[in-house]
Each structure stands twice: as C-alpha cells, then as structure tokens.
Nucleic acid binder design. Sequence first.
DNA 1: TGGGAAGCT
DNA 2: AGCTTCC
Length: 439
Amino acid sequence: MIGLVDCNNFYVSCERVFNHKLNGRPVGIMSNNDGCIIARSEELKALGIEMGTPAHLVRHLVERGEIVLHSSNYELYGDMSHRVQGILERETAGVEPYSIDEMFVRMDGFEPEALLEHAKSLHRMIRRGTGIPVCVGVAATHTLAKLANRIAKKHPGYPGVCILHAESDEARHLLQQIKVSDVWGVGRRLNERLQILGINTAWDLREADAKRLRRKFSVNMERTVLELRGISCLEMNDFNEPRQRIMTSRSFGRPTSQLCDLQGAVRQHAQRGAEKLREQKSLARAVLVFLKTDRFRPDLPQYSPSLAVEMERPSQDTRDILHAAQEALRKIYRPKYGYKKAGVMLIDLTDESRQQLSLMETPQTEEERQRSQKLMATMDALNEKMGKGTVRLGLPEKNAPWHLRCANRSPRYTTNWDELMVAYTDEGAAQKNKANKLC
DNA sequence: TGGGAAGCT
DNA sequence: AGCTTCC
C-alpha cells in the first residue's frame, strides 16, 4: 500500500507554528513579489477569496485588518518540510517527496487494522513533532492515495486519515461522490472532454474503457484509469528521477531596461541553476537564457527573446554556465524595453558519471576538471554550512530593481541565526525582531 | 497577476 | 513552440 501525507494549508500552518496570533484568523500567503495569494487558511477560504487572487484586489481588507497577508518565506517552509520528511523517514519503510507539502510513503505488509493504526500514528506524530497538521490517505496506488487523502481532508467521516480499499463498496460509494476533475491528472481541459463522454465522477472514469480512452486521449489517461482500479502504473522511484532540464527564473520587483541589471539577475539564476545541477549529479551541455517584458502592459512594446548557447563540453561548473549565460544574454539584449523577468534554463542534461568516460583528455584538461570539481564542492559545502549565498561569483548588489519584493515576510526562525524566535520580552529584542522583518 | 517541471500535439 | 497539467 501507498500512503500520501499532505500538509493542511501548508504555508499558513508553518507561519502559525511560530505566530499563534494567526490562529483562527483569515490568513493568506502571497507568491514571490507579493503578487497573488497562493495559500489560504480555512478562514480565508470561507471569505470566498480564491486561490491565485491578485493581492492588490484585497488590499482594502488588509488595511481594515480583516485579513492578514504574509510574503512567502520559502526557507521556513523548506525547513518545516524537511522536518516532516525526517519523521516519515524514521517511521516508514520509504519516503518519496512529491512537493514541498506532500510525501508518498511505503506502507506495505500491514494487516488492515494495524494499517489504520499506523496511519493514525503518523498523523499524530507529525502534529506533535512539527506543529503541522496533516492528512493521510492510504490506498493501493498513487492516484487512489491522492483521492483517499482528499477524503481525509474533506469528509467528516474520515478525520485526517482515510484508507481506501480499491474493491470495497465503501470505495465505490466514495468515488461516485468525487468529481472527475478532482482526480490527479485531470485538469480543466481533460475535464471538459470527459464530460462530453458522460464521464463525470471518479467512479465513471474507473469504469470507463481504458483502451478506448488511451486512443482518444493518451497513455497517461489509460494509466489513470488503471490506477483508479488499484493497478499500479507509477513506481515510487518515478518521483526522484533527475530532472531533464533545470529552470530558474523570477519576475523583477521593478521593471528595468539596463543590461547590467539583467546581468545581475542572470548571474544569480545561472549560479542557482548550477547548484541544482550538481545536487542531482548532472552535467549540462547548453544554457538557455530568456527575457520577458511585462505581459500585463499591452500598451508597452513587448519583447520575449530566448537563446540557447552550447558549451565546449558538458559541465557543472558555475563559471562555464555563467559564461555561456552571459553570452546568450548579450546576444538577445535590446535596449529600450522594460524587462520584467529573466530566466536561465539548463538543457541537454546528462549524468555526471558520463564525464569520467572521456579517454581522449589531455593531462591538462584532466587536472583542470579536478580543480573545477574541488572548487565547486568547496563552494557548495560553504553555502550549505554557512547559509545560501555565502560564497558566490560577482558582487552583492543592494536595491537592484530585479530583487524580489517581499514586504511582509516572517523571520526565518529555523534557518537563520539572526532571526531565531525570541522567547522573552525585552524591548531591544522586540526591536530586533521587528527589524528582521525587512528583507 | 508566481515559479518550476513534465508531457502532448 | 505552445498548451496543459500539477502543486
């Protein structure tokens, strides 16, 4: 059996662990640049504020003190996510993180009653160990485990935990109540097309002709049907395969037309991309850079170029990647546009073990490669130990227009020595905590 | 008026 | 390359 542990309103729950004043209040967390609302407490949902609402549309509610909006604090959420993962690693036979707030776990070899107890104890232990409320869904396949989790979240009869046995009457009854659009892999478009075929519920989809749907849609649709029947088509390992491309991009706090600003942003992204590349032990052959103007300003001239530059050989060295990225940027840059976003994509990835096979290398290049590896390992180790961005290429820039806007971010309570929780009241400390709220 | 990734067409 | 899907 497969369990899916999903944290409730994860970002809001993380904030609440450290700020009890947020309990019981309508709280939302905003995306990067404080753009739109990407996480909501139950109280905020009850006010009818939808996922993805632009933050400026509810500014008046914030000013009147009726709702609270926080900038997102990914360091905090990432750390809390690791804590949840740590407990699951200790308590289960295997964990597959799927997203920052969802983890699949192996739950094989339990008798039915012991299985329920095990799921309940995970639910309890995570709450106690981290302060984060979670729901646990258990079933024979990933797709059913997702549905079981949904039932645990929404169905009053299954408070926090739901075990779904594929062939049971109970499962049939529950699947008949779930809209097909709530099935994993069925988005807006597929939902419309399925409705036309008279497939409205998760049960309808389960009972549909898998081969026919494969012809009409794709192999993934057939997989979904089989998974709903309890036939596993996804392996646990499918979720931590190395990425086939790595993208880092970000919108700017303010638009800019200056090449040097874009160079700063691209430099940052190239370095972050190279770190991710080394994390998954890959090499990139080419680096693609893209720029975008503000698509919400049709009154201004639009320009969204992109260019891929190939490197001499596949590399994971920040310097090679940065060099290629800057070359690409120089070639696509045109002055007189107000750029709002820049990004770097690492493409044509291969496994780093392939690098060792090049027998034709001269001793110089072999030595160079080892130096590169040592340098990168040292940089990564320092940044791991001392905090992100401790060692990097290029000068730090204050107030660059491409820097993120995040006006109301909570302290990085668990990952930054200067922002630890203050446990006693003292004016100086309170001041300090306040000052730390600024980015 | 977000960011990141994958797969299909 | 653009669209869809996921979170």
